[in-house]
């Protein structure tokens, strides 16, 4: 109980209301907009970079720190955030989190799956594979794949190449989440052709209703991952 209260207090402190200059704040992020879009919605024709709008602030903050401190690898992302302190990164994360989520699917990667591969992908996304001890994507990212506050991002409409690259990075330890790093474990259990099928399937899902991530602790993921602090609190 005490830990839960502390967490709520910390979250409240970490996201100060800065409505006064929030419109102006986006102007500072011109460097981000070049790849991620003026409003974090992604850029047409730049089909590697993920959109950022509407993702949980806690998730975005962790990724920004990861690029700065070496838990994620991207030469250009590291270039932009390497001399940014936590407070500024928190504001960037908050700014993108509050923007309306992108509603369309990825611009490329459509219609590249046979009906059979598509069925396999959808089955893995929705049900996982108990034989491989592989949880369903939806068990953590939400039945609607819109994510879960504060640490689990939506999977809708991400560029397929981006998702494939993340699977590879998790598997090889180039992208590292807080331990226990569930995605490292999961990526190690997915066959390469299934990764591709899942990535293409996800890229075709669009968030037409503009769904936001589910509120924290509104459902309980099956594993106590480091990126799911509330799940650890619930234990």
């Amino acid at each position: 109980m005490l830990r839960a209260t502390l967490l709520v207090l910390l979250l409240a402190l970490a996201s100060p209301a800065r409505a006064d200059d929030s419109a102006d704040f986006g102007e500072r992020l011109a460097a981000c907009a070049a790849c991620h879009g003026q409003h974090g919605e992604g850029v047409r024709g730049a089909e590697y970079y993920p959109h950022l709008a509407g993702k949980p602030a806690g998730y975005l903050f962790e990724q920004l720190k990861g690029f700065r401190d070496g838990r994620r690898a991207s030469t250009s992302m590291t270039w932009y955030v390497r001399f940014a302190d936590d407070a500024f990164l928190q504001r960037i994360a908050q700014w993108y989190a509050e923007l309306p989520p992108r509603t369309r699917g990825a611009d490329t990667g459509a219609a590249e799956l046979t009906a059979e591969r598509r069925r396999v992908a959808q089955n893995l996304v929705e049900h996982g594979d108990p034989a491989r001890d592989l949880p369903a994507c939806s068990s953590c990212h939400g039945a609607n794949l819109a994510g879960l506050e504060p640490g689990v991002p939506a999977l809708l409409g991400l560029p397929a190449d981006y998702v494939i690259a993340q699977f590879g990075a998790w598997r090889e330890g180039v992208r590292n989440g807080a331990p226990p790093d569930c995605m490292h474990d999961i990526a190690g259990r997915i066959a390469a052709d299934d990764m591709r099928a899942i990535a293409v399937y996800l890229s075709q899902q669009s968030n037409v209703d503009g769904l936001r991530p589910a509120p924290a602790a509104s459902f309980l993921p099956p594993r106590a991952c480091g990126s799911l602090p509330h799940a650890q609190v619930a234990k």
């Binding site: 704040f25 500072r28 011109a30 460097a31 981000c32 070049a34 001399f83 940014a84």
Partner: peptide, 18 residues
């Protein structure tokens, strides 16, 4: 491009796009 550094005197820097 790039971001200016965050400091007490410039806590929310502007950036130059690539």
């Amino acid at each position: 491009g790039g971001f200016a550094v965050t400091t007490a005197g410039n806590p929310a820097p502007y950036s130059m796009p690539p």
